[in-house]
Design a protein around this nucleic acid. Structure first.
Length: 529
DNA sequence: GTATTCTGG
DNA sequence: TTCTACCAGAATACG
């Protein structure tokens, strides 16, 4: 829409009493802001509205026009209809006039459908619509990535990689081995070195060389660790270092991701070009990458605020299990408390290993665990895993109740919902194929938990953004990573902004368990987290 | 274009 | 009996 928008439209665009309808209005906000035009007024984003009505369906204009209006947008696009604003009509291409008319009618249709669907209008008005402008600001703000420190780090990385590569070739006895080829690696590990004599070549013809499979063979040959090491280092280089130079804006020297607000099945955001929601943290080398994320101005710091165990707290709230709820209320180590229950020992006697098992079980439960899956992750016999799961459900009977009720709801209504009414439709819940149905059941159990967490942090972002602006702070939000908000903050605002963040994030909703937020600051994202 | 392999929550 | 934990994105190999 905005392409070539003349100044004549400024008054209309900035008139807050004029409703704006369209698709991906966040992009329009940014495009107009770049020309000094501040888009105002209620936003009716048909992509977002349709996303709430059915998050896993297509939200593309031509698909919606066909299904809601019976109009074929691409069918008979005549030549030269031009756009609303372009001076020079294109020879070919989409009919912008028809598209615009379709968007206006679609907006009406979708508003009607939302009004007829319990909870949708509130979700749109109180979460998705106000979030549009917040995300637009975050995208335009961007985050500073210090390319120099990334390059310094890359040098040492390349040396380490060369060493690992030589080691792999030597251990394989193959001087020309392409370490990047899963095919060649598979042949060496399974056919030449016979590291897993029991393994049989799968029908697909390719031996499994994924991290999980390989790490099981690690005690058979040092070549395994060398391969995994090499892969990890290469990942850092090829995904988080080499491409970043091209993402740094020549205008402000910062990296501007795109937040996708209408993509995931559960209501989470995603981030792309580049994805700043999967910057490494788990390994020593990976953490070096986070050190490059720094505040953009001297005297400013990075500040990170994250919800502590939000999904587990939500599970406790949703199932109402007294023990789990109490553990959170009393501020206990909930994994240790879980271990105490399922292993029938006092909390003080819980071993590190028992805690690790309980932690894995806690996460597994939220994802719809099976004894096979738990056995895989704990590297224990299935019988042991089954015993742990049985003990878990015996200790927390209301969790079993929650799971059964959620699956039943999916079967009866065809969808499950978050605390705020966001829906995920579970099409395969009645599938004949047991595997397909089992996946649908796991989706049904997980969606209310993951989705409610997504709703909560979205509300927090809206509240934090409003408070920062109302309070005249210079601090700004730069990233959201599912349960964490990252800001850059002038030194003198550190204390008040920390208080603001904790108050607004913890105060989004009152549950049967406390929502707690941990907040840290430092020169880099690594220090702040 | 799809599959594999990695990164994060 | 069957398959095997949820949600994502990017780079690369391979057919």
């Amino acid at each position: 829409m905005a392409e070539g928008a003349p100044e004549d439209f400024r008054a209309l665009l900035e008139d807050s009493s004029v409703v704006k309808a369209g698709i991906d209005l966040k992009a329009q906000i940014s495009a107009l802001a770049g020309r000094g035009i501040m888009l105002a007024g209620r936003l009716e984003d048909i992509e977002l509205m349709h996303y709430l009505l059915g998050p896993e369906r297509s939200h593309k204009l031509d698909v919606l026009a066909r299904s809601y209006l019976g109009v074929e947008l691409d069918a008979a696009a005549p030549v030269g209809t031009g756009s609303l604003f372009d001076d020079a009509p294109e020879e070919t291409g989409p009919d912008r006039v028809l598209e615009t008319a379709a968007m206006l009618r679609l907006s009406e249709c979708l508003l009607h459908e939302m009004a007829a669907t319990e909870g949708m209008m509130r979700l749109y008005d109180e979460i998705e619509e106000p979030l549009i402008a917040v995300l637009a600001r975050m995208e335009r703000t961007g985050v500073r990535v210090d390319l120099g420190s990334l390059r310094d780090f890359a040098e040492g990385l390349r040396r380490k990689m060369a060493g690992r590569e030589a080691e792999v070739r030597r251990l394989a006895g193959e001087p020309d081995l392409n370490i990047l080829s899963p095919k060649q690696i598979g042949a060496v590990l399974y056919e030449k070195l016979k590291l897993d004599p029991k393994a049989r070549k799968p029908k697909s013809g390719s031996w499994p060389t994924d991290e999980q499979t390989l790490s099981r063979l690690a005690d058979r040959s040092p070549i395994i660790d060398a391969i995994l090491d090499y892969r990890g280092l290469r990942k850092l280089l090829s995904t988080y270092i080499e491409p970043f130079a091209d993402y740094i804006s020549p205008v402000d020297g910062r990296v501007h991701t795109t937040f996708n607000q209408a993509l995931t099945a559960t209501g989470r955001l995603s981030s792309s070009n580049p994805n700043l929601q999967n910057i490494p943290i788990r390994t020593e080398e990976g953490r070096e990458i986070r050190k490059a994320f720094v505040a953009g101005e001297p005297g400013w710091v990075m500040m990170s605020a994250d919800y502590s165990q939000i999904e587990l707290r939500l599970m406790a709230h949703l199932c109402g299990d007294a023990h789990l709820v109490d553990a959170f209320r009393q501020g206990q180590d909930v994994h240790a408390a879980t271990a105490a229950k399922i292993f029938h020992v006092p909390v003080a006697d819980v071993t590190a290993d028992q805690r690790r098992i309980a932690k894995t079980a806690n996460f597994g439960i939220m994802y719809g665990i099976s004894s096979f899956g738990l056995a895989e992750r704990l590297r224990c016999p299935r019988s042991e895993a089954k015993q742990i799961i049985d003990d878990y459900f015996a200790s927390f009977p209301s969790i079993r109740g929650f799971i059964d009720a959620t699956v039943a709801q999916a079967r009866e209504r065809g969808y499950v919902e978050t605390l705020f009414g966001r829906r995920r439709y579970i099409a395969d819940i009645g599938a004949g194929n047991a595997a397909v149905r089992a996946l649908a059941e796991r989706n049904a159990v997980n969606a209310p938990i993951q989705g409610t967490a997504a709703d909560i942090i979205k509300l927090a972002m809206i509240a934090v953004d409003r408070r920062l602006r109302e309070g005249g702070f210079r601090s700004r939000m730069v990233l959201q990573i599912h349960d964490e908000l990252l800001l850059e903050v002038p030194q003198e605002e550190v204390a008040p902004v920390r208080e603001l963040l904790v108050r607004e994030m913890e105060g989004v909703i009152s549950l049967s368990v406390p929502l707690t937020v941990e907040c840290h600051d430092g020169k880099t994202w690594l220090e702040a987290h």
